[in-house]
Design a binder for these strands. Structure first.
Ligand SMILES: [Mn+2]
Ligand SMILES: [Mn+2]
Ligand SMILES: [Zn+2]
Ligand SMILES: [Zn+2]
Lengths: 145, 145
DNA sequence: TTGTAAATGAGAATCATTTGCAATAACGCG
DNA sequence: CGCGTTATTGCAAATGATTCTCATTTACAA
């Protein structure tokens, strides 16, 4: 009875559907970019001006523990969020222009499975991200540091 | 002329060898554990009581940019440090008992090289760590969450 | 329509890390 | 060895990200 599957899932798990949760979810779904809490907050407030940053954090926290949203690091001091999709993928962030390149890495997934099996580990979370310089930034001089 | 190679490298790069740098380096080298800034600070202060936390941070920062020490995340909100050795290795942290399992993963290194080549990227830093439950913690009931 | 518990907003609190600045100490040189 | 220059330090205040407290609002089951 609810159009949005994310909202439906939230609802199904016994959470109340508030305007702010709906908005945060919409922003998250309607963006290809990799948003951090502040960006999410700015976008959300365009639709719901009175929303607070704390609510943004609280909302992604709920979505995270439900497995609907993933938080990951792009090498910065704060987290970024993205809705969880079928295929797992990872990120490379250019230190020059900031662009994020997404890539999939089945070999990495395999390596993890092997390790887990060999050592008897139960892997709950994987953190994998790269930083460096993209083609454009490497070309355009400024090969600093 | 300097016994410790790390100290020698620091010196060679034009940095002054201070008591506190020597101490931080010694603590880092003489520990198998994965120390965070606070732990490093506590251990360092046993040898040099007046050292400050700020100096610990400043020291690891210098060592990091020289490539002598690596900072990585173990899933917590703060960083951990370890001296850089020949073979790159990664970490799995048990959410139950806190133990850290180190492992090497050539497949991951390969996957990164391939990606870099294919996309023309220059990878400067790799962040790869796992969290979950170790064999002991999985066995000993408490299969919470 | 109402009661009740969940969720929110605002701001204070917390944590990790960084920074400003005056005092201290390394070390190249005479 | 004794100095002078300047990097480095200690301390405290500043910052940035995220969490928490608490009074107020709101979702939603009955
Ligand atoms: Mn992505
Ligand atoms: Mn290690
Ligand atoms: Zn770039
Ligand atoms: Zn364990």
């Amino acid at each position: 009875m609810e159009a949005n599957p994310l909202i439906a899932a939230l609802q199904a798990s016994g959470h109340r559907i508030t305007r702010q949760r709906r908005v945060v979810l919409e922003v998250l779904e309607g963006s290809q970019e990799h948003l951090d809490a502040e960006a999410l907050y700015q976008k959300a407030r365009q639709r719901s001006p009175r929303i607070s940053l704390a609510t943004v954090y609280r909302t992604v926290a709920v979505l995270k523990q439900m497995g609907l949203v993933a938080e990951y690091s792009l090498g910065e001091e704060h987290g970024h969020f993205e809705t969880v999709t079928e295929a797992p993928h990872y990120h490379f962030t250019c230190l020059g222009c900031g662009q994020v390149v997404e890539f999939d890495a089945p070999q990495v997934v395999l390596a993890i499975q092997e390790l887990a099996e060999r050592e008897g580990l139960e892997v709950r979370a994987v953190q994998f991200s790269l930083t460096g310089y993209c083609v454009q930034c490497r070309a355009g001089g400024r090969d600093d540091r």
